[in-house]
Design a protein around this nucleic acid. Structure first.
Lengths: 256, 256
DNA sequence: CATACGATG
DNA sequence: CATCCTATG
């Protein structure tokens, strides 16, 4: 396959993005794997041709709660779409798991923990279940690619206002500790791998108070790969010129 | 006072209408009494200056249910705003009652009966209570002016599709019978008084299927006056060129 | 079809 | 601030 391009984007409503014609750039981007989060729609609510091109395979995982979360995976690479119910135990439409070749590819919308303590606990338990799951697959010899909205900024350089958000879910020590653990378990934050400690690169901005124009943002959208894929990382980037959502897309190119 | 202009308009959300700048025409229209229905807002949710001019007196009656119904009255004529709780017993923000001179003026958003049988029964009971109330005032020697969204087309010429709507609340025999009774009780449908049996003049069109552009509408917004005011009717009209709501305004000019 | 709400982020 | 929900019309 050689160079393989992955895109991950939290669209905050696929129908809204479609109306804004904000998906057009994907048609020209030569994307091999497209993972969308927060589609906020059932499969039959997604407009017919949101893309000019037709992807041969698609996997839509909608939430049991209408109009909330939901993820969608589009690709031309034949593979096996798995359900991942033992991680997404509330059936909130948070995971596409797709196996192709030796790779298990995950498109994930991790829970937001800001609503209350219960949701924070759910997020942390989800984190744990997810890590156990990919570790299990890895122990079986699979390589892992994970993209999505992790809903946590890892380090101080991953958000514009670290001090002000030390008590905010999304930058809590306990959440950041899980990301440390993810990395200790052998998963690479591909953006940091390529760009080192570059600052002021974010993937989400609040709609409020013109945060995006002032670049008061957070880097909460990631591509992680298992370290056996380290030598295959060609590029990783944040596409912060793409508008249409409160998140921008992130990108990974692997030579596989 | 001489010529006195009354305007009645179901705005279907005063904030939406304000955003569309669809209230500007009122500033130039020299309106003495303005009655709005379905404002769908609390008093403090109504933008500061929806009109260029300031009315000296205003009376806002919002529903106990947020974002539903609600009526507003604007005038420079000093009078007495009454609450009319014994008619609007569910506190749905349906009536402005305003006494000035010998006149009791009512701005009313009559209930819609389409939701279910219970609401239809409520509408009919509201009709009865309202008629009893104005009859009582009349027996005390007051003249009556009633404007608003009656939510019923009186006769076949008052809607584009009478046959198709014989079983639809808004044109049911029992609803039409109440309007007959209103007239028998000595209240004049001022539009008919001025224009006779003119056809295809409506004040409401469904938003669906381009009904307004095809003039598939209903005349459900009225000005009634007690027959002692008959000789004072100067004009009555339907302002169907005013856009901004699914209803258009209706107008009455009295020489009082 | 359109305007409100409330939940969620 | 924005997207989606449901209720209401």
């Amino acid at each position: 396959m050689a160079k393989t391009t992955f895109i991950s984007w939290n669209v905050n409503g696929i129908r809204a993005v479609e109306k804004k014609a904000a998906l057009k750039w994907i048609d020209e981007a030569e994307v091999d794997f497209l993972g969308l989060q927060e589609i906020k729609a059932e499969a039959d609510q997604i407009p017919e041709s949101i893309f000019e091109r037709d992807y041969k395979f698609q996997s839509i995982n909608s939430s049991s709660k209408k109009g909330q979360s939901g993820v969608a995976l589009y690709t031309d690479v034949k593979g096996l779409a798995m359900c991942c119910e033992h991680v997404d135990i509330l059936d909130e439409g948070r995971i596409n798991e797709y196996h192709f070749g030796d790779i298990a590819y995950f498109n994930v919308y991790f829970p937001n923990g800001q609503r209350n303590e219960e949701r924070l606990a759910y997020k942390l338990a989800f984190y744990d279940r997810f890590l156990a799951h990919i570790n299990e697959l890895r122990s079986q010899g699979r390589s892992i690619v994970v993209c999505g909205d992790v809903n946590t900024a890892h380090r101080s350089i991953d958000l514009a206002r670290p001090k002000a958000n030390e008590d905010t879910s999304g930058f809590l020590p306990v959440e950041r500790a899980w990301m440390d653990r993810l990395i200790e378990n052998g998963y690479i934050d591909t953006f940091r791998h390529v760009h080192g400690d570059i600052e002021e690169r974010y993937s989400w901005w609040s709609y409020r108070a013109g945060a995006r124009s002032r670049n008061v943002g957070w880097r909460i959208d990631y591509f992680f790969v298992s370290d056996d894929l380290k030598g295959k990382i060609v590029d990783a980037d944040i596409l912060d010129d793409v508008m249409g959502s409160d998140h921008c897309p992130v990108k990974l190119v692997l030579d596989i």
